[in-house]
């Protein structure tokens, strides 16, 4: 499998070139275009197994119940996928270990990857600005993540702070806690930041430049009722 990220960073799409028998698993509705030699299978199972329960859990994390599996039946087939939100996509190579991805951040995966959901604690469920559940990707393979806006990659050594709603994904060797941004609670809220996510440890962190909830809050009042 070869991949190419095209039209970066505002309207990124991923172009896959698949050889016979290779398979890519994508988010439902992500396919933009494809060659004729690809078959699509829609199931609730990810590569690592699972079924209806895994599908339901995935729904709670902000993903779809179903997944689309694209398999090349001939040589040199191309598949173009793009996320529903305007923004960037990245490729993350998994070599064992686990990546924890924000609700709708998972776009596609290839290889021996298991896609499951995980609970990151009560306070992060309420205050992280993300879904209640997170997508947990583990194994070896290629992972494609999408964001709203651009994606920043950070190699955390020690501590790092990200505003709520801006997390795309982080490695499980990082621990994150919800804290206030400044030493005074009132100042934290008046500064418009309120609570933030503070990461600790060593590992990779992806964050996004924009936040869909903030955009929604900005646009919502200006929309006319139907």
């Amino acid at each position: 499998m070869k991949h190419e990220l095209v039209c970066r960073p505002a309207a990124t799409a991923v172009r896959f070139t698949l050889e016979r028998g290779e398979e890519v698993t994508c988010e439902v509705g992500a396919m933009v275009a494809m060659s004729s030699g690809l078959t699509v299978e829609t199931t609730s199972k990810s590569r690592g197994g699972g079924g209806i329960l895994t599908g339901l859990k995935r729904m709670f994390s902000g993903e779809s119940f179903f997944l689309n599996h694209f398999t090349a039946q001939r040589e040199n087939q191309t598949l173009l996928i793009a996320p529903s939100m305007m923004g960037d996509c990245i490729h993350h190579r998994m070599r064992g270990g686990t990546l924890i991805v924000q609700g709708s951040g998972w776009l596609a995966s290839h290889g021996n990857l298991e896609i499951d959901t995980t609970w990151q604690g009560f306070s992060s469920a309420i205050f992280s600005g993300e879904s209640m559940f997170w997508v947990r990707c583990s194994g070896t393979g290629d992972l494609f993540l999408s964001s709203f806006g651009a994606i920043y990659e950070v190699d955390v050594q020690g501590e790092y702070t990200v505003d709520t709603g801006h997390i795309v994904a982080f490695e499980d060797s990082l621990q994150f806690r919800i804290t206030k941004v400044s030493s005074s609670l009132i100042g934290s809220f008046l500064g418009g930041e309120g609570l933030v996510c503070r990461f600790q440890g060593q590992g990779k962190l992806y964050c996004q430049s924009h936040n869909a909830a903030s955009l929604g809050a900005l646009l919502g009042p200006k929309l006319k009722p139907r």
Partner: peptide, 16 residues
């Protein structure tokens, strides 16, 4: 099963 951080590994991290 766990993992390793070391500069000699690509991306600095691998499962182990």
């Amino acid at each position: 099963s766990g993992g390793v951080f070391h500069h000699s590994i690509p991306n600095g991290r691998a499962g182990a």
